[in-house]
Design a protein around this nucleic acid. Structure first.
Lengths: 209, 209, 209, 209
DNA sequence: AGCTAATCGAGACGGTACGTCTGGTCTTCCA
DNA sequence: TGGAAGACCAGACGTACCGTCTCGATTAGCT
């Protein structure tokens, strides 16, 4: 999530530790005001009160910077215990939708995903910083449901991993599409409908293959 | 889908009819080679053997041009009758995934969606040219399934529209996420798993509200 | 003296003819205010009311621009007939000194000569635009003195050319050194002393080889 | 000639004495390879195996450093007794021309002179370190010629000083112009022609004012 | 056949951002 | 205290594109 430290040095003036946070905050601010395509690194540097060179010393370019700035937003996601699997899912999907509704997330996320298509290193960075980092929610939710007896313990680990991936694609994809492409709010009503379809589909699929 | 004719003129030299197609083809070619962010209108004009002026006379900018260039790709989608609802869905989802796997679609689509977040006119153009244009497939598929007796006739038109939207968000979102973010192929196996979850979820949801 | 026209085109928008003069004037203005080392092309462009790209389209860089800006100054040099060779020389040397005393000439000339040491094309440009262009004065002065009978007609053309070069090196070198290195004014008194030494030296040298 | 010691210190770690020489040598090396305008202090520091800080602690900037680096070159000038005034002059002018032909002198000298036009402190430093320091040669040559009886003892001290200045401007100016602007070698033949003109001019001028 | 009007190519134009480089300064640790 | 290392701010560099403009040259339909 931080700037990539090229190597831990022992000598020379150490980097200003506050600058990283200031730059990421300035990036999010600029994303809100300008959007991705009109965001310039010179402007971000100015907002952060930092020279352009400092920014380039820590990030390779606009894409890497925006990935890190956006990734921090998703670390807010939590999975409070709401008693049932359905309620847990609804809760986390609503949180996810709320983050996606924020303009700094909207503007940046899709753009870097688009850029990642032609930049393998960038895609890997997105996966590390954002996607895989949040798969913990799916794993934790499933474990909790298994403890409650709502879901059986998985037998085939490969199958289980594939299911996690499928769930993640469906949940993240549907919420993103609803929010960014359809441009409709992913509100409680929509989340309830979506969760019901998802749970029924999954439970049916696991019972009658 | 074509360039926006500001007003039908009667006099003066008529526009070169072949230029539109040449420009859109050149745009797709450039998307493949360069991706969205390194695509420049000057380069597209050169590839199309056309002056930059000509290009700007027909499209307002990069975003509008790319939307039109990409939209043509999705007109290939067909819904052949494969006998059952599940097979029909699998077929169209596979076609959709195949188009999304093409680099000119990948590069362009996500980028213009990202741009559309801060540009309402662009979002409207995307919806007209791409999204709503393909909702016909969902409607046609449902009608066919109702004729077969696989689905009951809908009673509440509002509820039916909401369901169409939900299906579209889930299908398009999941396939896009799988292809672009997870960067895994949406192959037959995945499509079969996905379709099963979707159908079970929908049928269960409609039976036991 | 003008910007180097890469090729006489027939098509496309023609270059703004006034821009050349405006840029050269702005360059001299900036030389006066800032000197060579603090002169920036961005600043010159702004002063001239012209975009930086326009400037770079016409000149390869700072050195070439300054050569042209300074060269125009020396076109003012005239050789009025003052009756005797000594008076003619004194007159033109005083004019030369007066131009060299102007800050736009001082600042620019030495700097581009310094740069020309490592840049053959630049040295050639200086020679064409400034040095050889003003050798006309030496030639004209000699011809006039020969018409007056003050100097004999030269017999050996090679020797005559070498003498012109020597005179030029001595005159230009001495005035430049006096003005720029010694930083003393090349005023009438100094010019009279210098001219006397020069003429005596030359006449003695031609009489008794 | 050395770095300017702001105050003679008594306490603390003493400065590395070798560093001064290493830096000046590195400066000359960089002048040869890069020329003045592409010489950077960071590069000089690296060549000298010294930190940039050390360099800035001893010299105020690029100009001061180059003046000192170049000044050392001119200390090689000697005035061996060749028997006649003309031979003495030819000898020293040839030496001067040989130094000016070296790229580290060419590149640096003209550039700092150019800079000195807008920087009085720099001009004073050049005069101290280079110009006045070598006027000793003119004085010594005249005294020797007077001892030989080639020149009369001067009567008016002011006039004598003015003559020294004039000689210096003519000699230094002509050689510099020949070498750097005309870019022709100041070889024995040229020096002989030049010296003859100079001596005839001076002797004639002193005889018949 | 001439007129009118919009097109076409070419390329210059004013702007703006890029990512890099340099100049000087500062901050840290080590000797 | 000096020195090596290197981060820091400031700002110019020369390049690339943007979207607009100004040309001369076509190319139709309408008189």
């Amino acid at each position: 999530m931080q700037s990539r430290t090229p190597a831990p040095r022992a000598t020379g003036r150490p980097r200003n530790a506050k600058a990283d946070a200031a730059i990421l905050a300035a990036t999010r601010e600029a994303l809100v005001e300008l959007g991705w395509s009109k965001l310039t690194l010179g402007d971000v540097a100015m907002r952060a009160g930092v020279a352009k060179t400092t920014l380039y010393r820590r990030w390779a370019g606009k894409n890497e910077l925006v990935v890190d700035a956006v990734a921090e937003l998703f670390d807010e996601l939590r999975l409070p215990d709401r008693g049932t699997l359905a309620a847990d899912i609804e809760g986390v999907v609503l949180q996810f939708a709320a983050i996606l509704a924020r303009p700094e997330a909207k503007s940046g996320l899709m753009a870097v995903v688009a850029e990642s298509i032609r930049d393998d290193a960038l895609r890997e960075r997105i996966r590390e910083s954002i996607v895989d980092r949040q798969k913990r929610l799916v794993l934790e939710g499933r474990a909790r449901a298994q403890r409650r007896g709502e879901l059986p313990a998985e037998t085939d680990p490969g199958e289980a991993a594939r299911t996690v991936d499928l769930i993640f694609d469906v949940v993240a994809g549907a919420v993103v599409h609803r929010t960014l492409v359809s441009a409709e709010p992913a509100d409680e009503e929509w989340v309830r409908s979506f969760t019901r379809v998802l749970l029924l589909g999954l439970s049916g699929a696991s019972q009658a293959p």
